[in-house]
């Protein structure tokens, strides 16, 4: 495991924990898209089905369990415990527009036409666009709390770091996976606009607000 891969995992973990803590401490999930969180729960569930059949390392297994557990906990906090603070009116992105094309594409373009492989591919495609409901929510309300911005920045950095990891692996081991690579590029590109706003505003101490 190279440093980019490790920092990527760490960044992903930080993002997930920031979100959970934000909701827990403020007792509110306003500004957070429950729909994106449902998509992430689906992503982790379909990707880590090999959890019990395919052992890689203690690190790998524990991270998978932490990601899955945290994503379900987040969904529970939004739709259960702090439901009263959830922004139903603004979180209106139609997730079937992401789920259906990802599923169709996973059936058409995959490495191997087997159930586990298709589900893994589906999770990769879905993850690349799963943040769209959240970005849609931010653009609809025109602003994001600073802590939400930190969450989005950590979550976006994770795939960017994985891209560097794949570049590293390509040159050092000749390893590459086009499905993961192209999806990872799309996923990172979707965050570019946000990265720009984050660096130009949030890091200078201002709240992230979009121009009217």
């Amino acid at each position: 495991m190279n440093v980019f891969r490790f920092l990527g995992d760490l960044s992903h973990l930080v993002a997930i924990v920031i979100l959970l803590l934000k909701i827990w401490k403020t007792r509110s999930c306003s500004g957070i898209s429950g729909r994106s969180q449902i998509l992430f729960a689906i992503v982790f569930t379909t990707r880590y089905l090999d959890l019990f059949s395919n052992f890689i390392s203690v690190y790998n297994t524990s991270m998978k369990i932490v990601y899955i557990t945290c994503s379900y906990a987040t969904v529970y906090l939004i739709y259960g415990k702090f439901k009263a603070t959830y922004d139903f009116n603004h979180d209106t992105f139609r997730i079937e527009f992401l789920l259906v094309p990802s599923a169709i594409l996973a059936f058409l373009v995959n490495h191997d036409f087997s159930p586990l492989e298709i589900l893994w591919t589906f999770s990769i495609y879905l993850e690349s666009v799963a943040i769209l409901p959240q970005l849609f929510l931010v653009s609809k309300t025109g602003e994001a709390e600073t802590i939400t911005s930190h969450y989005l920045f950590a979550l976006g950095s994770y795939r960017l770091l994985y891209l560097l990891n794949w570049l590293w692996r390509y040159f050092s081991q000749g390893f590459y996976d086009l499905i993961a690579l192209l999806s990872g590029i799309l996923q990172t590109v979707l965050y570019c606009d946000f990265f720009y706003l984050y660096i130009s505003k949030v890091l200078k101490g201002k709240k992230l607000s979009l121009p009217a």
Binding site: I56, N60, K64, W120, N165, G174, F175, I179, A180
Partner: peptide
């Protein structure tokens, strides 16, 4: 060597 990502990455 392709299609190994799922085995060791997250």
């Amino acid at each position: 060597q392709v299609a190994d990502t799922k085995k060791d990455e997250l």
